[in-house]
Design a binder for these strands. Structure first.
Length: 274
DNA sequence: GTAAACCTGGCA
DNA sequence: TGCCAGGTTTAC
């Protein structure tokens, strides 16, 4: 589910509700996430104050008044939601983590049916999740045409595959790469090392445009994404090609096609993209 | 490069 | 019943 725009939407919705709050208690109902929840997870959080929320790629970083931060990744189906009441009496199915806040500030609840997500308390420096992660797509200095152009020489992978690679650029996933390649006019199966400079520039523009738009519309709710206070996103109504196989291209009305690359569906317009 | 693995739910 | 799904990692 959550790619960069969805995680950013969650961050923005939660920040005003939990910043400055102290963690009163932690309950782990299921430790078997993609990485097992560590034995010292509860101890590392309890009594700490949340000083702020940041995002890196698809990861949410909950800063604490300690050298460590609480790092959450939502996988495909994860949610991090704020509940006003933190009574464990209304536990929902697949609620795995309860972080109760002091002074009636409610609780943060991690829910994830597929358990592909993860939750750790760690130092950010040296954390393997971030070690090899590429630049933020909206960082105009670090992510630009020169950067992508320099990467082009040493790979025979498809452009779809390269943009999905978190080491190349952080936070893009299956939905947004389809949308980006549509506005850039590039077919997903094109080899990255055969792109012209002009087309690389178009891709950079596409990344910036689509990601900024998607954040502005608070992410895409394809089936079950909700932000930190249970609101659906709005960007799914603006998808140009994703999950629109057979429907008319918004530009030329040619039916949208889908193709499977590396076991993931990609959607494109055979007329507008080459 | 591609496939399967992790796990559950929804849909045809 | 079987296939598909926003992600990532591991292994042929």
């Amino acid at each position: 589910m959550p790619e960069l725009p969805e995680v950013e939407t969650i961050r923005r919705s939660l920040a005003p509700l939990v910043s400055g709050c102290r963690v009163e208690s932690v309950q782990v109902r299921c430790r078997a996430l993609r990485l097992p929840v560590a034995a010292d997870f509860e101890v590392s959080l309890r009594g700490r104050t949340i000083t702020g929320l940041r995002r890196r790629g698809k990861y949410l970083l909950i800063d604490l008044d300690s050298p460590k931060c609480w790092v959450v990744h939502l996988g495909m189906s994860g949610r991090l939601v704020h509940r006003e009441r933190n009574s464990l009496s209304d536990v929902a199915k697949h609620d795995h983590l309860f972080v109760s806040l002091a002074d009636g500030a409610g609780a943060l609840v991690f829910n994830d049916p597929r358990r592909f997500g993860l939750s750790v308390v760690t130092e950010e420096q040296g954390c393997p999740f971030f070690e090899k992660m590429g630049p933020e797509p909206l960082d105009q200095e670090a992510f630009d045409a020169d950067y992508l152009w320099a990467l082009r020489s040493r790979t025979r992978r498809t452009v779809k595959d390269v943009l999905m690679d978190q080491r190349v650029v952080a936070g893009l996933g299956n939905i947004y790469v389809s949308e980006i390649l549509f506005v850039a006019g590039v077919r997903p199966r094109v080899r990255f090392d055969r792109l012209s400079r002009k087309r690389i520039e178009g891709i950079v523009d596409g990344v910036r445009t689509i990601i900024a738009e998607a954040i502005e519309h608070r992410g895409s709710t394809v089936s079950d994404f909700l932000d930190g206070i249970g609101r659906r996103g709005g960007y799914q109504w603006r998808h140009r090609v994703y999950d629109r196989e057979g429907k008319p291209c918004p530009i030329c009305e040619t039916p949208i096609r889908s193709v499977v690359i590396a076991a993931r569906s990609s959607f494109y317009c055979p007329q507008c993209q080459s």
